[in-house]
Design a protein around this nucleic acid. Sequence first.
DNA 1: GTCTATAGATTGATAGAC
DNA 2: GTCTATCAATCTATAGAC
Lengths: 210, 210
Amino acid sequence: MSLSDTKERILDSSEYLFARKGFHNTSLRAITDRAGVNLAAVNYHFGSKEALLDAVFQRRLVPLNKVRRDNLEIVRETARQEGSLPGVEESLRAFIEPTLAFPKSGTGAEDFITLVGRAMSDPNDTVRDVFIRHIAPLFHLLFDILREALPELSPDILFWRLQFAIGAMGHAICMAGKSYSLPDGVTPVNDVESLTAMLLDFVTTGMERP
Amino acid sequence: MSLSDTKERILDSSEYLFARKGFHNTSLRAITDRAGVNLAAVNYHFGSKEALLDAVFQRRLVPLNKVRRDNLEIVRETARQEGSLPGVEESLRAFIEPTLAFPKSGTGAEDFITLVGRAMSDPNDTVRDVFIRHIAPLFHLLFDILREALPELSPDILFWRLQFAIGAMGHAICMAGKSYSLPDGVTPVNDVESLTAMLLDFVTTGMERP
DNA sequence: GTCTATAGATTGATAGAC
DNA sequence: GTCTATCAATCTATAGAC
């Protein structure tokens, strides 16, 4: 088995299990069994279970964050060149669309986005700490652009509205593809485009409220 | 130590630790040490760790759900007697206000609401399963009343908008009282009344969008 | 780099004295 | 109901042969 193959298999397997069962409820044995590699390989390649978690985030978040950052910078620059303000929906779309579309990016990243949804609400956890470290700069960029887009809104209110939007997105990610106790007559769409459109409608409207 | 005292101390201690460290990352020993009771008391009083988790939810959710259910029924009945439709903001308020105000209910329930926020995004977990079992009927009631409030909206869109609203609420609960990497110049309010008002504004606006 | 074997700690749960 | 003591399983991590 080639060098990088084992690492990749461990990353895939970890991603799958962390997303479905949670970090603390996933053992290294479960990971290596699923990956078809030796138990000791984890500590050889990654050093520790927590370092493995960090690597799982790193692998997906570096390219995803690049797309989101580029999108946001384009929105900001375009507005500057036009001498106008960035659009609220545009700014939110620049962040949300690549996030929800990520599972379709063909890299086998379906599990990862579930892990992201989970990481967002671990109040004081290993998982959340690692995640925050990777996402904080991008969050600040989004906040800054929305400040430009909505200059009349107080920073405090904007901060909370952005939190609401992020919470809505995270929960949508968690729910997508599942169906816990649906009300009668509801067969919710699960395609990414519809979900993105509905979510953007919802959060843009809430964000723009006077 | 009186009979119910030990049970209560275990419940308090579990609530605190489950909320902060998560279910799988909390050991029975940590719980009993903090409670100042014997390790064996957990299995004597509750039978298993999972049954203890269920009891933690049960203790808080029975009274909280009664308030939310009563509120929702009042909104529905008042509208019926007036021959009008239930209000969207009223309906959401009936559910959201008691939830966010719960930590102030003087029962020492600050930790519990954090646990609720966490439970909402555990995709396939013990915690989520237990939580869903306790909350599903109330969710259906809220959905039904919102259907009456917004008869022109398709059930699918309403379903997802309600999910967005619940996600926003859950995330707000998780964030309240914490301060992870705040942008400059932001000192977010943390009092329940302001947060409730902002959240209700946000989700009502999004829900009512045509 | 990969393997076996195992150390060393911690886990949930229980048996049995009081 | 509460305690001590402990079982049996599981865990992360590592040492050392190949």
